[in-house]
Write a protein that binds this DNA or RNA. Structure first.
Lengths: 124, 124
DNA sequence: CAGTTATCTAACCAACTGGTTTCCAATAGG
DNA sequence: CCTATTGGAAACCAGTTGGTTAGATAACTG
């Protein structure tokens, strides 16, 4: 190799779906989203159930925001967060492509081969 | 504080669902899973589409394995990976709980106000 | 203007991630 | 036994994550 071994794979610049999955890969953030199903809430309200400082809550909300899962508003001093479920639909849609595999029994290899017909590429 | 701020929140010891979401938060790994819908494959086969060394592929497979998304076997020197879609079902199930929110229209501010308006101050 | 409330920014830290290169273990075959 | 093939393990590096504390910003209140 002519070049030195340099930083190749930072996890930073991810595609949209990866951002959503990464945002969901934290129980605190998932709980926050569940909380937001009851309606918009302020940072203090969202963070209340967790033993966590304000900035920590704020950071989690930012991750959710960058993933498109919440939007922020402004009401007086508060910046209420509102659930945006569209990315969740994409998650469900992507997972659904594997439905046949969790519904089927794989005792037989025959089944497995017969169901494999065609499918476009992964679109990340 | 008298004590130093140590070991607060490593991302390591996560719950099962978080492990699954984290595993899916990488386009390479999602592509690997898509590849495995066509049937079990060896490490070399799985890594072939990616410009990546063997150990890197191996690491990705390990992440998928820890998340329960693939199982490994042994055939001669090869250790074929097989898709296990059960965790995917849980992902779909979790996301589905938000269905009403991505089906609903939220153009109305009424919903938003109805949850916040404990004391309807007029502010305009 | 000063103070309170609500939230964010900045700087810092330890642990994890995702890649690399190098080396090791197990299996098939002459 | 020796060798080639297939894959994993160890050590390393740069960048991200998730938390902290301390200070800044914005809007309401007096």
């Amino acid at each position: 190799m002519s070049s030195v071994a340099l930083g190749q794979g930072p996890a930073g610049a991810r595609d949209p779906l990866s951002l959503v999955f990464a945002a969901l890969a934290d129980p605190t953030r998932r709980a926050m989203l569940t909380r937001l199903r009851r309606g918009p809430a302020t940072v203090a309200e969202i963070g209340e159930p967790f033993d966590m400082t304000g900035p920590a809550v704020s950071k989690h909300l930012r991750v959710l925001e960058r993933a498109g899962l919440v939007s922020r508003g402004r009401v007086a001093q508060s910046r209420p967060a509102t659930l945006q479920a569209e990315p969740m639909r994409q998650v469900a849609e992507w997972a659904e492509e594997f439905r046949e595999f969790w519904e089927k029994r794989y005792d037989r290899l025959d089944d497995y081969l017969s169901t494999m017909a065609d499918d476009p590429e992964d679109r990340a």
